[in-house]
Simulated scan of single mutants.
Amino acid sequence: MSALKKAAKSSLPVKKPAKAAKPSTKAVVLKSRVSYKGKVFSVTTDTVTEPGGVTSTRDVIRHNGSVIILAVDTSKNPADPTILIERQYRHAAGQFLLELPAGRIEPGEAPLAAAKRELIEETGFRARRWSKLVRYFASPGFLSETMQVFLAEDIRAGVAQPEEDEKIDLLHIPLSELIGMIESGKVLDGKTILSVMLYAANRKK
Score class of each variant (00 low, 15 high):
Met1Val: 05
Met1Cys: 04
Ser2Thr: 10
Leu4Ile: 09
Ala7Gly: 02
Ala7Cys: 00
Lys9Asp: 11
Ser10Trp: 00
Leu12Trp: 01
Leu12Val: 10
Leu12Cys: 03
Lys15Leu: 07
Lys15Ala: 11
Pro23Trp: 03
Thr25Glu: 15
Lys26Glu: 10
Val28Asp: 12
Val28Ile: 12
Val28Met: 01
Val29Pro: 09
Lys31Glu: 15
Lys31Thr: 03
Arg33Ala: 11
Arg33Lys: 14
Lys37Gln: 13
Gly38Gln: 11
Phe41Met: 06
Ser42Glu: 12
Thr45Arg: 15
Thr45Leu: 14
Asp46Trp: 09
Asp46Leu: 07
Thr47Pro: 01
Val48Thr: 05
Thr49Trp: 02
Pro51Leu: 05
Val54Asn: 06
Asn64Met: 02
Gly65Asn: 11
Gly65Asp: 02
Gly65Ile: 10
Ser66Ile: 00
Val67Tyr: 01
Leu70Lys: 01
Ala71His: 05
Val72Tyr: 02
Lys76Tyr: 02
Lys76Val: 00
Asn77Tyr: 03
Pro81Leu: 04
Thr82Gly: 11
Ile83Trp: 01
Leu84Asp: 07
Glu86Ser: 08
Gln88Thr: 12
Gln88Tyr: 15
Gln88Ile: 00
Gln88Cys: 06
Arg90Tyr: 06
Leu100Val: 05
Leu100Cys: 08
Leu100Ala: 08
Pro101Glu: 09
Gly103Asn: 06
Arg104Gln: 15
Arg104Pro: 05
Ile105Cys: 05
Glu106Leu: 15
Gly108Ser: 09
Leu112Asn: 08
Leu112Trp: 05
Ala113Met: 06
Ala113Leu: 08
Glu118His: 15
Glu118Cys: 07
Leu119Asp: 11
Ile120His: 14
Glu122Ser: 13
Glu122Thr: 11
Gly124Arg: 07
Ala127Leu: 08
Ala127His: 04
Trp130Pro: 02
Ser131Asn: 12
Ser131Gln: 15
Val134Glu: 14
Val134Tyr: 09
Phe137Ala: 14
Ser139Pro: 00
Ser139His: 12
Ser139Asp: 12
Pro140Thr: 03
Pro140Val: 05
Thr146Met: 07
Gln148Asn: 08
Gln148Tyr: 02
Val149Trp: 00
Ala152Trp: 01
Glu153Lys: 10
Asp154Ser: 13
Asp154Pro: 00
Ala157Gln: 13
Val159Ser: 07
Val159Glu: 15
Gln161His: 15
Pro162Thr: 13
Glu163Val: 03
Asp165Asn: 14
Asp165Cys: 04
Lys167Pro: 00
Ile168Lys: 07
Asp169Trp: 04
Leu171Gln: 05
His172Asn: 11
Pro174Asp: 08
Pro174Gln: 07
Ser176Tyr: 01
Glu177Phe: 01
Ile182Gly: 07
Gly185Cys: 04
Val187Lys: 10
Leu188Ala: 14
Leu188Trp: 02
Asp189Val: 03
Tyr199Gly: 12
Ala200Asp: 12
Ala201Gly: 03
Asn202Glu: 13
